[in-house]
Structures are given as structure tokens and as C-alpha cells.
Amino acid sequence: MTTTAPATSPPATRTRRDWWIPASLLALALVPSAGGVFRVVDLSSGRTAENARFFDLPVPILVHIFGATTFLVLGALQLWPSFRRRRPAWHRWSGRVLVPAGVAGGLSGMWMAAFSDVPAHDNAALMWLRLLFGAVMVAGLVLGLVAIRRRDVVTHQRWMARAYAVGQGAGTQALFLGPYVALVGQPSGNPKAVVMGLAWAVNLVLAEWLVRRSQSRRRV
């Protein structure tokens, strides 16, 4: 009588299978990142009626663009399972860049939400949503850092996933706003706040489900 070991996928196969995770996250980050590059180019051309709101706050907008872009790109690679397993040292060292970049991006976004002029299609509700989710992102990064310093990997992963979900909110908002604009028109006021808030909420719920499912599978 012979026994056959269960078939397992070789490492190369698993690597090929999970490449879609960072690719999807980078694609989602493409719209806000491209918008940030456009904003920098626009500001470099001088003050106009369209960019006056950002031109008056050059430091926060630049910190937000570069901090958030760095956070989104490095975060996508952090969430690539096979890459993280093959390069654990890279995971740790890039995290030392990712966390400050994310905190800088979150705080500068909150600063702009609180102190810049409210755009034509926004309202106070959307300003408070930006402050709320910005605080969740910054708190998630800080708590994730505290957890890993205690060697609490489970809590670290959950807080980092929550922070990254909020950071990816701009990409999801573009996906939500696109169909809304096509079907209804440009939203403003409370309808825009609802759509934007829904995008953040969906990201957080999805991130929570995915990270908990992944951790449960590893325990099994």
C-alpha cells in the first residue's frame, strides 16, 4: 500500500498566480497618481483661476501628492504575498519608508480639507468625511507600527490593511463617480459626499474581510 502526498503548486506557479494583486492595486492607484502628476505640472505653470485653491497651499499639496503616491506604490508591493515571502528584508525596509509617507500624505490631506477653500461641488459633509477617513488612515499606520514593534503580526496586518484601504479611496471614488457622472451628471453637495464616503466604506469592508480570511487560512 502506498500513499501519495497531496499535490502542491510549486513556488513559481504560486508567484504567477498572485501577481494580479499588486497589478490591480497599482491600476487602482493610477488615476489619483496621474492626477497628482498633472497637478504638479499645472502648478509649475503659474497661478490660474482653476488652480488657485492649490496654489495657495503649495507645501501641503506637494507633500500629499508625493507622500500618497509613495504609500500606494509601496503598499501594493507589500500586499504581494509571494514577493513578501521571497524578500522579507525588503518588506521591513520599505515599511520604514511607507509608514512616514502614508502619515505625511494623510496629515497633509486633512490639512487641505480643513484650511483650503471648499470647491464648488463639495460641502461641509465631504470635508468632515475627508477628516474622518484621513484620521483613520493615520491612526491605522501608527497602530500598525506599534503592533509590529510588539511582534503582534496579526494586529499589524489588520491596521496596515485598513490604512491602505483608506489610501486607495481616491481610486475607488473615481470608479464610483464615473458611472454616476455618466448616468446622472456631476454630483455636488450631499450626493457627492455619499458617493465618496461609500467608496471609502467599501474599501474598508473589503480589506477587513480579505485580511481576516487570509489570517484564518494561515491558522488552519
Score class of each variant (00 low, 15 high):
Leu198Phe: 09
Gly106Pro: 02
Thr155Val: 10
Leu43His: 07
Ala161Gly: 01
Gly134Val: 06
Leu79Tyr: 13
Ala114Cys: 00
Met160Val: 14
Pro88Phe: 14
Pro6Ser: 15
Trp209Glu: 07
Gln186Tyr: 13
Ser214Val: 13
Ala68Gly: 11
Gly67Glu: 08
Ala27Ser: 10
Ile148Gln: 07
Ala193Glu: 00
Trp111Asn: 02
Ala52Glu: 15
Ser33His: 14
Leu183Cys: 10
Ala147Phe: 07
Leu143Ser: 02
Val146Asn: 09
Gln186Lys: 14
Arg218Ser: 14
Val99Gln: 01
Val154Tyr: 11
Val166Arg: 02
Leu79Asp: 02
Ala170Ile: 00
Leu30Asn: 12
Gly171Lys: 03
Ser44Leu: 10
Leu177Arg: 07
Ser188Thr: 04
Pro22Ser: 10
Val59Ile: 14
Gln215Phe: 05
Pro11Glu: 03
Val153Gly: 11
Pro32Gln: 08
Ala34Asp: 04
Leu98Ile: 13
Asp56Ala: 15
Met112Val: 10
Pro191Ala: 06
Thr2Arg: 12
Met1Arg: 07
Phe83Ile: 03
Gly109Ser: 12
Gly95Glu: 11
His91Met: 11
Tyr180Pro: 00
Ala29Glu: 08
Ala5Cys: 03
Ser116Trp: 05
Gly75Glu: 06
Arg158Met: 14
Pro187Ser: 02
Gln186Cys: 07
Phe54Ala: 13
Ala114Leu: 09
Arg85Leu: 07
Val103Leu: 09
Arg84Asn: 08
Arg87Gly: 01
Ala165Thr: 00
Ala68Asp: 08
Trp128Asp: 06
Ala114Asp: 02
Ser82His: 03
Val194Lys: 01
Ser9Lys: 15
Gly140Arg: 02
Arg87Val: 09
Trp80His: 13
Gly106Val: 08
Arg16Leu: 03
Val138Thr: 07
Val41Thr: 15
Asp56His: 04
Ala170Thr: 02
Val142Asp: 00
Ala89Met: 07
Arg219His: 11
Ala174Tyr: 09
Gly36Cys: 08
Ala120Gly: 00
Lys192Ser: 02
Arg92Trp: 01
Arg14Leu: 15
Lys192Pro: 00
Gly197Arg: 01
Gly185Lys: 03
Ala68Trp: 09
Arg86Gly: 09
Val136Gly: 06
Pro60His: 02
Trp90Thr: 15
Ile21Glu: 07
Met112Gly: 04
Val154Asp: 15
Pro100Cys: 06
Ala76Cys: 10
Ile148Pro: 00
Ser214Trp: 05
Pro191Val: 12
Ser82Asp: 03
Leu74Phe: 05
Val73Lys: 01
Ile148Phe: 08
Val211Thr: 12
Gly106Ala: 12
Ala27Trp: 03
Met137Cys: 06
Ala76Ser: 09
Phe176Cys: 08
